[in-house]
Design a binder for these strands. Structure first.
Lengths: 227, 227
DNA sequence: TTAATTATGATAGTAATACTATTATTTAAA
DNA sequence: TTTAAATAATAGTATTACTATCATAATTAA
């Protein structure tokens, strides 16, 4: 699988391709685990440099600032997820089954290849849940969007909305339903674990309830109405 | 209406009650418009102090740091929204109508009293859309939760879930559906205006489409299944 | 083969941010 | 009227987010 070696990252995300050197790879992989460990707000290039054993300035040669590094990591994940959805739904003929598989992937239920050469996918998943929205909830969103920084997320949204259309061609909100599904897969997980009274899964804290909620929500919305 | 004068704010949000002095009120009202204008990341106490004509240290007497001020502002909004939902659904007998009114309030469609003594509600609404999730998407979420900092949001969620139960007592995910509705009212608005291809409303950018999407989504989910 | 160029990383800064400690002034109480 | 308490201003410090310059290694050109 050629993709697994090199997901094509947007060149605007970095100054120097981190995939082309050992130090670059360390910046991304150690950066991922450090952001997961201490959170994006307390994360600094200085701490990461100390962790790797290099200097701050070296990191600045690869990434303009820490939001670009976060965006690189987040984009990497959306690329990976999009590939997983494509790969695991491709051979299915039933749109119903495709949707269920997609929800399983989003809620981390499918036992797919969770090992990657550099980046720890468990850390990555945690980062997506707690930090990913910070890359677009800024005053730069329009400029960043012009530079195509959010393409991987859009591609995933587009792929999922295509499956929805396949299931019910007359449904009018396939894209909004796709973003709802993606965002809620992560938000309900976060709420369940941190603010449980905002969900109905607080007593058990089992991700399978999030999955069941999503299945119920999405298929209810997509069901063809007889009116 | 006693509430309109003094929404009871959690005392852990401030060091000195900003509602008890003119300068305190200015910190909150000018803070709101400045955060809306430049965004939370670029917002600093120094800029706010200059804007008001006081010094940084004075603001630090009222608020520990800028995230507490944001949380104060966000909590104020959830208080206000909860009151609006309560007030505008109280006299209704039909749960169906209550849900529709709540969606109208969330999507800013109802022409309610949008003037407040101090805080500009238009600014506040923008802040909720772009910045509100930043108060809980942190490593402090559990500690902050123990100090009850998220009560106003939880109260709103609880009120809405009660309406859902009233509409369909057998629905099993009323709280998760309430958070989905609240979050999506804001996220779809943000996406529509900033990353339109993530929604189905990009061509028109009219909030009424978000409302229609939510009405469709929520009533589909709540509909009693005959199985 | 050697000099020149380029790439890479380290060192040493600066401006801004996020606070804190101390001092001055006003207000209120005894 | 003196004392105490509350409030705000001044003047700091440590950290963060970078930037400019320097040193060295690797690559290329003469």
């Amino acid at each position: 699988m050629e993709w697994q070696l090199h997901p094509k990252m947007n060149e605007k995300l970095y100054l120097k391709d981190p995939d082309q050197s050992e130090i670059g790879k360390k910046i991304v992989s150690n950066g991922t685990s450090l952001i997961r460990k201490i959170g994006y707000e307390l994360f600094t290039f200085k701490k990461l440099a100390e962790d790797i054993g290099i200097t701050e300035a070296t990191i600045y040669r690869y990434f303009e600032n820490k939001i670009k590094l976060l965006n690189y990591i987040v984009s990497w994940y959306w690329h990976w997820l999009d590939y997983q959805v494509m790969f695991n739904t491709n051979n299915l003929t039933d749109a119903d089954k495709k949707i269920k598989v997609t929800i399983q992937i989003l809620t981390w239920q499918l036992d797919i290849n969770h090992t990657s050469q550099d980046i720890n996918l468990e850390d990555l998943h945690e980062i997506i849940i707690s930090e990913s929205s910070k890359v677009y909830l800024t005053k730069n969103v329009s400029e960043d969007n012009k530079e195509q920084l959010f393409m991987p997320y859009k591609n995933l949204c587009s792929r999922i909305s295509q499956i929805f259309i396949e299931y019910n061609p007359s449904y009018v909100y396939p894209r909004s339903l796709a973003t709802t599904m993606i965002e809620m897969a992560h938000y309900q997980d976060f709420f369940m674990n941190n603010l449980p009274s905002l969900t109905d899964f607080g007593s058990e804290k089992n991700i399978k309830h999030v999955r069941n909620f999503l299945v119920d929500l999405i298929f209810s919305a997509l069901e063809k109405k007889i009116s």
